[in-house]
Simulated assay, not measured.
Amino acid sequence: MPGDSAIERAFYFIACGIARLVYRVKAIGVENLPSGGFLLVPNHITWVDAIILQLACPRPVRFVIDEEFYRKPVLKPVLLMARAIPIDRRKPREAIRRATEQIEAGEIVCIFPEGQLSRTGTLGRLQRGYEMIARHAGCTVVPVFLDQLWGSIFSFRGGKFFRKWPKHFPYRATVAFGNSLPAEEATIARVHEDLLKLGADCFEQRPELRLHLARRALRGLKRSPFSTLVIDGMDGSKLSCGKLLGVSIALSRSLRDKFPEKRIAIVLPASKGAVVANLAVALADKIPAGLNF
């Protein structure tokens, strides 16, 4: 049961219940989580990463929070209830001590090793803070990757936070827990590599990849039929979404009737013709094989 008191348990269940109304989180690799205390090190995409991570984790997580945010009157009561650990970057020893105590008590502690929110949606440079906690506590480190959150209103996509509409509701996200690492093996290079691998695993889990490529193209082109999509660098001619779709469908029918082979080779320069040919082959449910022109 999460928490050490009735108040904390009530807070945990109410907060997670509300969050589940907004987010649908798929957790991968939960079996990799150790039974005792350990350190979680995730990538940092949005302002609500802590909420997403807590929804995916079966046990309460104690987050290391920048003291500047910890002391904000609006946030402090909630962070106190969640037993977050404030950290002053100029004087980190107290936070390291408190994090170590929590881990030794069997709790999960989480610190975002990038030290700041991503401005590009990609994994940034990792800082040494998590190494100091892991070695001081002598604990295992579990890398964890949060996927599908870039583009959320709480991310910096479009060069701004908050000032954009949600793409979906409820919002879907994937959280992948990696294999645990001993403190001495959890170097910046190793954790960075493991996070990138987890990111690739998450990408393969995205539901849109289960759809046929041609169907995805069909849907996208239908949305803006009059918009210019292709400008041919050879003659400057343009091709709209609607024209590309129409020509490709016509060609795909001919390819389907005349060529029984599953693969069709395409020998064309980089041009609108090559775009049409590749899309037509995909719409014919065949595999385009591009050859050097």
Rank of each mutant, 00 (worst) to 15 (best):
residue 100 T to V: 10
residue 124 G to S: 14
residue 108 I to L: 03
residue 94 E to P: 00
residue 99 A to H: 00
residue 87 I to W: 05
residue 98 R to L: 12
residue 101 E to D: 13
residue 89 R to H: 09
residue 85 I to N: 08
residue 81 M to V: 07
residue 126 L to C: 14
residue 100 T to P: 01
residue 94 E to D: 05
residue 112 F to S: 09
residue 100 T to S: 11
residue 85 I to Y: 03
residue 120 T to Y: 06
residue 73 P to M: 04
residue 66 D to Y: 09
residue 109 V to E: 10
residue 109 V to K: 04
residue 121 G to L: 04
residue 113 P to Y: 13
residue 98 R to N: 10
residue 122 T to H: 11
residue 91 K to Y: 08
residue 93 R to N: 08
residue 102 Q to M: 15
residue 76 K to R: 15
residue 89 R to L: 13
residue 91 K to D: 13
residue 93 R to E: 14
residue 115 G to L: 13
residue 104 E to G: 09
residue 131 E to P: 07
residue 106 G to I: 07
residue 95 A to L: 02
residue 112 F to P: 09
residue 70 Y to F: 15
residue 77 P to K: 04
residue 81 M to H: 04
residue 100 T to G: 06
residue 116 Q to P: 00
residue 120 T to Q: 04
residue 82 A to T: 06
residue 113 P to G: 12
residue 105 A to S: 15
residue 110 C to A: 13
residue 100 T to W: 06
residue 67 E to K: 15
residue 86 P to K: 06
residue 71 R to T: 07
residue 90 R to V: 02
residue 122 T to E: 15
residue 110 C to P: 05
residue 130 Y to N: 12
residue 109 V to T: 06
residue 77 P to R: 01
residue 74 V to F: 12
residue 94 E to S: 10
residue 80 L to G: 10
residue 116 Q to R: 14
residue 74 V to I: 13
residue 93 R to H: 07
residue 114 E to D: 09
residue 67 E to T: 09
residue 89 R to A: 05
residue 77 P to L: 00
residue 89 R to P: 03
residue 123 L to F: 14
residue 86 P to Y: 04
residue 118 S to L: 08
residue 105 A to K: 11
residue 73 P to R: 13
residue 98 R to H: 11
residue 82 A to P: 03
residue 121 G to D: 04
residue 114 E to W: 10
residue 89 R to I: 09
residue 108 I to F: 05
residue 77 P to V: 06
residue 126 L to D: 09
residue 107 E to P: 00
residue 109 V to M: 03
residue 74 V to L: 15
residue 114 E to F: 14
residue 107 E to F: 12
residue 94 E to L: 08
residue 78 V to P: 01
residue 119 R to N: 01
residue 131 E to D: 09
residue 119 R to D: 05
residue 80 L to Y: 06
residue 108 I to M: 07
residue 102 Q to P: 00
residue 66 D to E: 11
residue 92 P to Q: 02
residue 81 M to W: 03
residue 88 D to Y: 07
residue 122 T to C: 12
residue 131 E to K: 14
residue 84 A to E: 02
residue 98 R to E: 13
residue 90 R to Q: 12
residue 117 L to M: 15
residue 80 L to E: 10
residue 129 G to A: 03
residue 131 E to A: 09
residue 79 L to D: 02
residue 90 R to K: 13
residue 73 P to I: 07
residue 82 A to W: 04
residue 78 V to K: 00
residue 79 L to M: 13
residue 116 Q to S: 12
residue 124 G to Q: 15
residue 92 P to Y: 00
residue 107 E to K: 13
residue 102 Q to I: 00
residue 102 Q to E: 15
residue 89 R to S: 09
residue 112 F to N: 03
residue 93 R to A: 02
residue 111 I to S: 11
residue 88 D to S: 11
residue 112 F to T: 11
residue 90 R to C: 03
